[in-house]
Design a protein around this nucleic acid. Structure first.
Length: 178
DNA sequence: CGCCTTTGACCAGCGC
DNA sequence: GCGCTGGTCAAAGGCG
């Protein structure tokens, strides 16, 4: 891995019913996305740490996939076998694909995605017992945008922190609605 | 030597 | 039923 800019964005996400987030975060060009959280399970309501690289632009995109989506035509067993975890996806404008969020990730796959110019990479948290996954891919329409999708929650502390973390954290805490 | 990435194969879900 | 697609596995190789 290269030396990525290490910027963190921690949000004490009280994901109640205040989904809209539209505010400046890095000054000129920052959060303009909307975070949809209607079906977020309790786990996500506690704390989610959103990593960002170079924070030129970050916008939370929807993608919280509710588990009950699994209910298909009489295939409830699937829900038991492979319950889909809710996902949180967001976009960052970054030159690097790998966003250093302080956790250690191991890449376990890469796939070319249909209608996408860039492959999607699959990462898994290497912390023992932690099965948080994330997918990273560049947006085909704008290769400067990296779409990161998190699945699961870290139940362990961040393994490394950076100075910038607190900086961004403080900025985030200005917006208690989030 | 341990940890990581790469990459092809495999599997399951879904739509037609 | 079949083919496509997304997601995962696992072997092989690279690097510090």
């Amino acid at each position: 891995m290269e030396n990525h800019p290490k910027l963190f964005l921690a949000s004490s996400t009280t994901l109640g019913d205040a989904p809209a987030l539209s505010s400046n975060m890095t000054g000129s060009n920052a959060l303009d996305g909307v975070f949809y959280n209607s079906d977020v399970p309790d786990g996500f309501k506690r704390e989610i740490r959103f990593p960002i690289a170079q924070v030129n632009d970050i916008s939370f995109s929807k993608s919280v996939v509710p588990m009950e989506n699994e209910v298909k035509s009489g295939k409830e067993k699937c829900a038991e076998k492979k319950p889909k975890k809710p996902r949180i996806a967001f976009r960052t404008r970054s030159k690097v694909d790998i966003l250093d969020d302080g956790y250690r990730w191991r890449k376990y796959g890469q796939k070319a995605v249909k209608n996408q110019s860039f492959p999607r990479s699959y990462y898994r948290c290497t912390h023992e017992g932690c099965n948080v996954k994330k997918q990273v891919q560049r947006q085909s329409t704008d290769e400067g945008i990296v779409v990161t999708t998190y699945e699961g929650m870290h139940l362990h502390p961040v393994e490394k922190l950076s100075d910038n973390f607190e900086q961004i954290l403080n900025q985030m805490q200005i917006y208690p609605a989030f």
